[in-house]
């Protein structure tokens, strides 16, 4: 983990209030699917944890995708090519795909939970894994990266308002298409993760959580999640997570 001042080499809006920024860094190759970077912004005491959406190991670049939720992300959306940002990286755990024997993977993402799954899906595909993706968004104008996911495998989109793809939730699509897979990988809002892990039952999978963070490195105990095996104990989302085995932690 290091703190670096990183130049922005690309910036664009890719959907409603959703932005993509590409940074160059010597540490790009160390970033694994599921990990996040911790970004400082002027006049904001706390950094913003944002997951890594893609890595280009040849160019030494990585991509983040974020949506405007408050002051911090709004300010981040004004940053342009040529600006630099103070970033701590790499942060947190990753999807442990090197330890898994996966033939068929199911990717289930919702909203800003979709970005880390792109980097994951791409890495799985490169390893020869068959990838099916189910992505949920609020509505048509919120959808991003559909084509990029399609290039990796069968991709299904659901929108809450039915303005694009299937009307409903990602879990509706799961029930409808009954995908075959050995492992599932999911990231999204907690209610979605609850619904997904419920539908999946005992199937093996990994989820990635988000929470308001303090330090982002494991010292302040702001972002904890109770253990399912012993709810009196907890793990740190920033350090032990954000990726956990699907049945490891108590959601919500």
């Amino acid at each position: 983990m290091e703190r670096q001042l990183l130049p922005i080499i690309k910036q664009s809006q890719i959907a409603y209030e959703t932005f993509e920024i590409v940074f160059r860094t010597s540490l790009a190759q160390q970033l694994k699917p599921g990990q996040f970077v911790h970004i400082a912004l002027p006049n904001h005491i706390l950094r913003r944890p944002i997951s890594v959406a893609n890595v280009n190991p040849i160019e030494n670049t990585f991509t983040i995708i974020f949506k405007i939720f408050g002051d911090g992300t709004k300010m981040l959306s004004t940053y342009q090519v040529g600006n630099t940002l103070d970033v701590i990286l790499p942060c947190g755990s990753h999807y442990p795909i090197e330890d898994l024997h996966v033939r068929k993977a199911l990717i289930v993402g919702g909203g800003v939970g979709v970005p880390p799954l792109y980097y994951l899906a791409k890495t799985l595909k490169e390893k020869g894994v068959d990838v099916t993706s189910i992505l949920g968004f609020q509505g048509k104008e919120h959808v991003f990266y559909e084509e990029k996911f399609q290039q990796l495998g069968d991709t299904h989109i659901a929108t809450n308002d039915g303005s694009y793809g299937v009307k409903g939730f990602v879990t509706d699509v799961i029930k409808q298409i009954e995908p075959e897979f050995d492992y599932y990988f999911s990231c999204g809002p907690t209610p979605m993760l609850q619904a997904v892990t419920n539908v999946m039952g005992d199937k093996q999978g990994f989820i990635s959580l988000e929470e308001r963070m303090g330090c982002g490195v494991g010292t302040c105990y702001a972002c904890i999640v109770p253990l399912k095996s012993n709810p009196e104990k907890s793990l740190k989302i920033c350090k032990d997570g954000p990726v956990f085995a699907a049945n490891e932690v108590v959601l919500g």
Binding site: H44, I45, L46, E211, M213, Y221, A222, I224, S234
Partner: peptide, 30 residues
Amino acid sequence: KAATKEPRYGNPTPRVAETASGMLNAIGLQ
């Protein structure tokens, strides 16, 4: 970090919030 007699779980999350020139925390002595 603070020590208590027994292990403490602390408070529910969210435990932090950003404010103007500061932050609020309620970790709860975990």
